[in-house]
Amino acid sequence: MEKLNRNFVRMVFVLILASITIAAAKHKLLIIRTAGENFEESRNGLSYELEADFEIIDFTIDKTFSPEQIGAKMTEVNPQVVVLMNNTSVSLYKKYQATLPNESLKIPTVSLMAILVNEAIEGLENATGIGYEIPIVTSSVNLRSIFGAEKIKKIGIVHRASFSEFVETNRKFCKNENIELATLVLENEGIDGKLQGALESVIKQGANALWVPGDNKLVNKELLTSVWIPFIQKNKVPIIVGVKNLVDPKFSFGTYAVLPDHSALGSQAASMVNDIMNNSWVVEENGATQPPLSVYTILNLPVARDKFGITTEQLDGVDQLLE
């Protein structure tokens, strides 16, 4: 009996040792993120792809955290790669990296779910990322596949200068898809008085759909009531938005929402982590970012059906219908 017990203890010891060895053989990946369901979805997508090769440490922060706390976590974990989710994490990590000696090798980072990620990671070394804004070409091509190529040829966009780079990059991709952009840039001052005229202008240029930027200076409660909704009631064009609330049928605003698929964003980040690992932990092109590849689409069914005559047969490509 005693021998049996001893053998059992020995076996448990060997198993523990084996587990420790396996864990030790894995690379370490630190996720720095804020709390929230979308972040968890992205983390799960990433973890599924990488957990065989990586020990994944999930570090949740908030705006009260300091760069020193990021530094302490980095020292504790000693990761090969860091994944930063949202602007708060990117900004804190940037401040932490700035405290490191100039000549030190910088741990590679992949940033996602941050607004205008290419600007957010500017100044970070050994950094790459995935955009959070859905490319206009992706939204337009998806809308066209529901409404038909003859109805969606030109997309109207009113935006501020901060979106100019994004819009102009997309103009080239849209052209490849035979979609034109009719655009108008608004100055930061006096938006309330100019928005109505700007929208009328892009419609006059022949826009047969509008793409609404995720910019709360242009889309807020006041402007929705005073400009956007009255304008849409007069002009029969589908409205593409990037927020689910804006296609809620009770608001009579957005027609079609195209959102990031958060789990797929995690998978896309995992693919970038694999590329970095295969490149000896160096980002191939510092500061370069990728667009998000996968989207989740939502249609405001009453508007699509009643205003544009969309039938059930045209809806097979939509992820969610709101009634």
């Binding site: 490319p135 070409v137 992706t138 091509v141 797929a264 590849l293 996968s294």
Partner: peptide, 12 residues
């Protein structure tokens, strides 16, 4: 990519 339709953006 996770879905068939996501292959198109890779080309785009």
């Amino acid at each position: 990519v996770t879905k068939v339709e996501d292959l198109l953006p890779l080309l785009t």
